[in-house]
Design a protein around this nucleic acid. Structure first.
Lengths: 196, 196
DNA sequence: ACCTTATCACTATCCAGTTAGTTACAGGAG
DNA sequence: CTCCTGTAACTAACTGGATAGTGATAAGGT
């Protein structure tokens, strides 16, 4: 009946990882179903165990993949938190699963990897340096400032369903998103600019 | 063996709700276990079905309870978003389960209830009015401003594990929390104050 | 006597992980 | 080229334990 899967381990592995990313983003670790992942990938469930180990390790693989992707796609070179916020907003808007995976991960599998810690450390260093150079306000610790901006970038996308409903308008329409993006950047600017 | 539970329906129901709140906060809807909830409450599992219906409706009961509690405990009377941020920060710090339930809820059961929508609508009205009165900046739509402040209040408590690790210090020590609280309020002030 | 509250033992289902294979293909021997 | 053999990729069917939900019944209170 169904055409047999071409024998290509790398391709199959990639399909499984992609399917797992969707599934975990939607349902989380506890809610995800191995069988659904296999179906979505059009692969046999057994291959998940061959290639990734078990459910937890598949989740880890997804997390690693996602956090590497976001780290690359949303840089913070010179401590410009406004540009960072803009890039991150666009990124998360284009890939909603990135934010969902990050949240599930924080809730269901808290321990960070060394790579992740290193990535954040480098970002905090950028912030600290920009503070010293007077490009960012210095009366707020670097970690706090960064954490604030991080959450601000998601505020619209993670707004409570009831808030969106109360706001009435189509929160996700293109024009509304554009409006929010401008608001976000204005707000971030207000937060990070040095006192004059 | 075990002393029989006193026959008090209201008390038992309350114990079950409390246990369910803890369980759902920790594991989410999919990860929560009915048997654990019954054990934690020291009640018979069957009573969950008698008093609440099924797992989903128990989750709903927890959500209703929590969102009502937070609405009462964190008011936004006159549109003072700085005071709101302070109160909300303190509230979520004292009750971490409140934030976790809210997130699980947004992820696993998106539809808002009418009560919730009404609560947010009244808050948005407060913001809008304060904007008209010149007490809040008016170049950002009320919903956006509110959503931003909402997420800012949680930024430290919801910071990625890797960020906390990278920041090194004991992120949850009393002194560090006090420091962050001050930073948060300064940041919110910067965001919400009208352009001069 | 009656109703509410609580208990216990049970079931049907779901689901992660496994057992036991089969099929495609590469590379060498004749 | 053709046959043979070993190995990597893949598949189908199964299992055991966990888990949401239930039926039947007991006991407290009025």
């Amino acid at each position: 009946m169904s055409a047999p899967r071409p024998r290509d381990a790398e391709a199959t592995k990639a399909l499984l990882l992609r399917a797992a990313t969707e599934e975990f983003a939607e349902y989380g670790l506890a809610g995800a179903r191995i069988d659904r992942i296999a179906d979505k990938a059009g692969a046999n469930k057994r291959l998940i165990y061959v290639y990734f180990g078990d459910k937890d390790r598949l989740f880890d693989a997804v997390i690693d993949d996602q956090s590497q992707a976001v780290t690359e796609a949303v840089p913070l070179g010179d401590g410009d938190l406004v540009a960072f916020a803009a890039t991150r907003f666009d990124y998360v808007l284009a890939r909603p699963e990135a934010r969902r995976i990050a949240v599930w991960r924080a809730f269901e599998r808290a321990e960070p990897t060394d790579d992740e810690v290193a990535a954040y450390r480098s970002r905090l260093d950028s912030v600290t340096e920009a503070q010293r150079a007077g490009r960012l306000r210095a009366d707020i610790p670097a970690a706090d400032l960064f954490a604030l901006v991080l959450r601000m970038t998601e505020s619209w996308l993670s707004a409570p369903p009831a808030l969106r409903a109360a706001a009435g308008d189509a929160a996700m329409s293109e024009s509304r998103l554009k409006e929010h993006r401008a608001a976000l950047l204005a707000a971030v600017r207000s937060v990070v600019q040095p006192a004059h």
